[in-house]
Amino acid sequence: MGLADGAAMSRSDGSGAGRDGTLLALQSNRVLEALDGEVMTGPAIFRRISERSEEDSAASGDGVQPNDQSLLYPVLHSLEAGWKLQAAWLSGPDGTKHRAYMKRRLLPGRPGRIPRS
């Protein structure tokens, strides 16, 4: 079925925990930079990260493949558990519900709506 074709497959084949931690930290920073006060869904966050880091990752060689989405949701959920992000199910422009994220504010508030990306 091709379930094992993911670019992140190599990570589970022997990469150290330290390398995983570094990649998670790097991805966390990218997610926080990508949000920057907006309300975005997971796919939208990933697209923004990809746009901003295409050249950077090639130049630095940090090993994160451009289409590798294996750390996206672990990072998002980890940031949410660490109270750096807040999430809510919001209706998109097409009426379907999507889980959207935003940076947590000092005063609690519910994200309004998901803008068209």
């Binding site: 091709g2 497959m9 990570r11 289409n67 672990p74 980890s78």
Partner: peptide, 26 residues
């Protein structure tokens, strides 16, 4: 296939999501 591949191995994804949810703070 490509979309599933980009998410990585399912067991690894599940393990990492569990670790993300089961934080020390929680």
């Amino acid at each position: 296939r490509e979309a599933l591949g980009r998410l990585g191995p399912p067991a690894e994804l599940g393990r990492q999501l569990r670790a993300a949810h089961q934080s020390t703070r929680r």
